[in-house]
Nucleic acid binder design. Structure first.
Length: 274
DNA sequence: GTAGGATGCTAAC
DNA sequence: TTAGCCTCCTACG
């Protein structure tokens, strides 16, 4: 269940378990069978993530990359050898003597060329996990945001503007900065945007490290606030995501939810002012 | 057993 | 704006 941190973590985990050695490749489900046959026995040379797109680079092929996008349902499951018999929903299984990994339900799993891979990079915006160490990542996004009448909540989800932010991070980062999700991009100040970007860099890095989304500051954790522990099951500790109608951790007001661009938005009207 | 929803995105209207 | 993709899990009878 993927936002950008998940994909970068997957790139690292694939490299660690399978990098530099030949892999066995198969597609028990069948949809990737021809390509898996081509991959079988080749060496995974490199892995890369940009936003929610994962690229596995194999040697010895004319088309060098496996392009994976998990979409909403896609899942990846790593395990130690021996691999159990695959279920019939496994689109791609990679295996070597120590490890296996199963890919299920991706929106995309395809062999692509260098040129096709480059075209994907070209249509994605800066990724805080790729461009967080350089000022131009924030600046590039700001050029689009500062001119847009679209809400900041929608802009943050637009992968052409920022790559890797999904529904959890957008809700949480707007809460953390006290910004009303319905404010237009052009109504943000440069200072506000810089703070959001810097925060995304930190949050996503922490997400890669922990392999889950934690956004609550130390002073607001359940222990620090004398609250009962989190009951939601989506991963880490959050302020507003999927907390509709529950009291805000900070102001006690009711968290609101609304549909925005076919996704559920969550925010605290008390803490997030226009 | 069935329905509905989910951390996503695209193409078509 | 809507349907469609594709899988897993939960809630509800």
């Amino acid at each position: 269940m993927p936002e950008g941190h998940t994909i970068h973590r997957l790139a690292a985990d694939h490299r660690e378990r399978f990098g530099g050695r030949p892999v066995r490749a198969s597609s028990p489900q069948g949809k990737f069978a021809d390509s898996a046959a081509l991959l079988d026995g080749t060496v995974l040379e490199t892995t890369e993530a940009h936003g929610k797109h994962l690229f596995l680079g194999f040697g010895g092929l004319g088309e060098e990359w496996v392009h994976i996008h998990l979409g909403l349902f896609g899942k990846v499951n790593f395990g130690d050898a021996p691999a159990p018999p695959p279920t019939d929903t496994v689109r791609l299984r990679l295996a070597n003597p120590e490890s296996y990994v199963d890919l299920r339900g991706p929106t995309t799993c395809a062999l692509i060329t260098d040129a096709e891979k480059q075209a994907i990079h070209d249509r994605l915006g800066p990724d805080p996990l790729r461009d967080g160490d350089y000022a131009d990542g924030a600046a590039k996004a700001w050029r689009r945001i500062s001119k847009s009448r679209t809400t900041i909540a929608a802009l943050l989800m637009d992968q052409k503007i920022v790559a890797g932010v999904g529904n959890v991070y957008r809700a949480e980062v707007l809460f953390r900065h006290g910004i009303d999700p319905y404010r237009a991009g052009k109504d943000l100040t440069a200072r506000e945007w810089t703070a959001i970007w810097d925060d995304l860099v930190e949050l996503l890095r922490e997400g890669v490290r922990l392999n889950r989304i934690d956004t609550v500051r130390p002073e607001h954790t359940p222990e620090a606030m004398g609250r009962p522990p989190r009951v939601d099951d989506h991963g880490g500790e959050v302020y507003v995501y999927r907390r509709a109608h529950l009291p805000c951790h900070i102001c006690g007001g009711e968290i609101r939810t609304a549909g925005l661009a076919a996704r559920n938005l969550f925010w605290c009207p008390g803490c997030q002012q226009r």
